[in-house]
């Protein structure tokens, strides 16, 4: 699975967690772009992504990803390593 596919899946997860089917997700999108994207939603997105891609993030990785693009790249790396 390449980065654009991962981004598309992530966008789906994010819209699902935020319960906002019209939210536009780009590689630059981050928590600051949506009023409902609080720490609770953030954790839910991370856990949903772990479930979806069958991977497990480390604490430092969770903190390093600042936007959707970073996050997708991180997932791609982890999927490859797995």
């Amino acid at each position: 699975m390449d980065v654009p596919d991962i981004q598309a899946s992530l966008a789906e997860i994010i819209r699902d967690v935020l319960d906002d089917p019209d939210f536009e997700v780009t590689p630059e999108t981050s928590a600051a772009d949506h009023s409902d994207w609080d720490s609770f939603s953030h954790i839910s997105i991370i856990v949903a992504a772990e479930m979806r891609f069958g991977i497990k993030f480390q604490t430092a990785e969770i903190e390093s990803a600042c936007n959707v693009g970073d996050f997708a790249a991180l997932i791609a790396r982890k999927c490859q390593a797995a």
Binding site: S44, V47, M51, F57, T59, E63
Partner: peptide, 16 residues
């Protein structure tokens, strides 16, 4: 429990 989420968000019970 998920220790990453415990350290990150003080969740003793993982969302899963």
């Amino acid at each position: 429990s998920d220790s990453a989420l415990w350290h990150h968000a003080k969740q003793a019970v993982s969302p899963l």
